[in-house]
Amino acid sequence: MRRRPWAIGFVIFLGLVLSGGGYAAATNVVQAEVSSADQVAEGRKLFLANCASCHGSNGEGAIGGPSLIGVGAASVDFQVGTGRMPGQASGPQLYKKPVQFTEEQISAMAAYVASLAPGPAIPDAEYLKTTGDDIDMTHGSELFRINCAMCHNAVGAGGALTQGKFAPALGGVTEKHIYEAMVTGPQNMPVFNDANLTPEDKRDIIAYLKYVEEADSVGGYELASIGPVAEGLFVWIFGLGFIIAITVWLGAKAN
């Protein structure tokens, strides 16, 4: 099954349009944050300067970019806040890049897009904490295995998808961005709305991920947590390599 690059681009474009439209039709839309008119105006200015060429001057979508009506502040905050937007050359998937805007600018653009139509909002801080009595990490790790590990690996080391796409590694991603990714489903990631995973569920998942990221490795250096392949290569290259070096010394004649 081969697809031409433009076909992939088209499918992605179509998908983005449809999923964007989907949010608008969805039943559990989070109310947009109340933002000041100034912030929205500032956001619109930034939007026109940086985003409108692809997403249309009113965020209605254009060639090269999907409609942003109803994608919500969370989507803008994730896409721009991780540097994925503004997007560069087309490819199977947008990459994480250095962020190009300040926090204030991102908030302003998020406020503007949120003002277009209701959509998922930037999460409250109470769902982003990783410690506390009400956090159930066991629950979080179980939900992570059921809903996320198949793409992102059991400890968030990332994994491959079809045709050059991939599920990124989750180490180093902020709590807020993980939350926003779950609630908005960027690119090919499915959406985990609040009816599927409640905000508390999401918080538990994030707490588990942060625990895994920050906990000391009990067994020693972790070999990137990618499992038996790394272990096999290690034993062939370093384990057997070192032992062969010993055998050569052992078989060589002394001076």
């Binding site: 059921i146 198949m150 690996n153 059991a154 080391a157 599920a167 499992g227 038996p228 272990e231 290569l233």
Partner: peptide, 17 residues
Amino acid sequence: YGPYDPSPVSAGTQPDW
């Protein structure tokens, strides 16, 4: 990896070398 459960799976599921 967590306990065995027939429903989930992890990316990078490989056997030993």
